[in-house]
Simulated assay, not measured.
Amino acid sequence: MPGKQYTLLDADRRPYLSATPGALGGHRRSRIYGRLDCPGALRHIAAGGYVTNRVFFADVETAVAAGYRPCAVCLRVEYRAWKAQQRG
C-alpha cells in the first residue's frame, strides 16, 4: 500500500504529488506564501475561508520562483526585504 501523497506546486505553478508534505503554505489568489502555522492564515481558515485557494510548496525558492511573495504576518523580515526590493 503506497504512503500518503501530498499535492505541492512547482516553480511553474503546476501541481505535483510528493511523499513529503509541503514546508510552506500559500494562497493561490493573493500569491502569498508563509509558514503552515501562520496566525493570519489560520484565522482565515477558522472563519471558513482560504481553504479552496490553499497551495503548498516544498521550499521558499519554489514559492518565490512561482511568483509568490512572503507573508507580512508570519515572515515579517522576509516581507520587509521583499517590499524594499519592490521599491528599488
Rank of each mutant, 00 (worst) to 15 (best):
Y16C: 11
T20S: 12
R28D: 03
V60Q: 14
N53W: 02
G49M: 07
F57Q: 07
Q86M: 05
M1A: 10
G67V: 03
P70M: 04
V51I: 05
A63S: 07
Y79D: 13
Q5S: 09
P21V: 05
V55C: 06
R35Y: 02
G25K: 03
E61R: 13
G3E: 07
D12N: 13
P2Y: 14
L8H: 09
R43K: 06
P39A: 08
G49L: 11
V64R: 11
Q5R: 14
K83G: 06
A23G: 12
A23T: 07
V51T: 10
L17F: 15
A11E: 10
Q5T: 12
A58E: 06
L17P: 07
G26S: 00
P70Q: 04
Q86N: 08
R29Q: 08
A41G: 04
A72T: 15
Y79E: 10
P70W: 03
G34A: 02
A46G: 12
L42K: 07
V73A: 15
G3H: 15
Y50V: 05
M1F: 08
A84V: 06
D12H: 12
G67P: 00
G25C: 04
L9K: 11
A19L: 13
L24A: 07
R69L: 09
L75I: 05
A72H: 15
V77H: 13
R28N: 02
P15S: 13
G3A: 08
P2W: 08
N53R: 07
A11W: 13
R13I: 05
T7V: 15
A84R: 10
D12R: 13
Y33G: 01
P15C: 14
L36Q: 02
A63N: 13
V77Q: 09
P70C: 07
R87M: 06
D12T: 11
C71E: 04
L9D: 09
G48F: 01
P21C: 03
R43E: 12
L8T: 14
A84Y: 12
A84E: 07
V73L: 12
Y68M: 04
S18M: 14
G34E: 02
A58V: 07
V55T: 01
F57M: 15
S18P: 06
L42Y: 00
E61N: 11
Q85A: 13
A66Q: 08
L42P: 00
K83H: 10
E61Q: 08
K83S: 08
R29D: 07
F57Y: 04
L9W: 10
L75Y: 04
R69W: 03
L36P: 00
P2C: 12
M1P: 13
P39G: 08
Y16R: 11
E61S: 15
V55M: 02
I32K: 00
Y68R: 03
A66C: 10
D59N: 09
A65V: 06
V51P: 06
A47F: 03
A63H: 10
R31W: 01
L42Q: 11
R80Q: 09
Y68E: 04
L36Y: 01
A65C: 05
